[in-house]
Amino acid sequence: METLEQIKNRCELAARGAKVEIVANPGPSQQSSLLIDNEHAVPVARFLRDHPALSFDFCSNVTGVDWLDRVAKKTAKVKQVVDGVEKEVDQTTEEKIPGYLEAVYHLYSIKLKHGPLIIRLRTENRADGTRLPSLTPVWRSAELQEREIFDLYGIVFDGHPDLRRILMWDEFKDHPMRKDYVQPDDFEWEPTPHDEVLERAKQHYTSRPQLDGAEKITAPQS
């Protein structure tokens, strides 16, 4: 397989205006990845699949990652004048990196038997800008996996043929794989609630909607 640098250059030449960035992997696994801008993701993906020297025809794994807002601390030596004397002082600058969601694709080539090439797509933020282009038109194997990411992470894939919840039920509201997800406490409908669960259950009983009148029949006579 060609080096990431070569593949990056090829991608930028093939899709005009595409911004491809190498995301270094600090670990020992030697699996660095390419970050592709959202606008050109589909043409770049198509290029990666169709180019004879690359032919990444097999998209093995598609997954989401949630990166929360974080603060990166940088320490740098700065010259400062303290009490009339110039000194070198450590100055830490804090840089706020806003959070984002990521979709990670692991590509292999069945024809040339090489891989993995890892490509990443990033959303603008974690709140209202969680849209990414779908790569399902390029690799069909992303179909169910992108649905799973939509379900568990809340990334909306534009151009996906059938974007619905897949593992959670359709009425479910939140996205349970996000790092700031808080579990609701109303799923513990025990047949005989007691202690803590009873207290919690009482709160939910009051707000429980009337279903069809059936519960009135079994309710004890007061």
Binding site: P26, G27, S60, N61, P116
Partner: peptide, 10 residues
Amino acid sequence: RPPVGEAYGR
């Protein structure tokens, strides 16, 4: 504690 990084094994 593995070092910071990522890996895909199959």
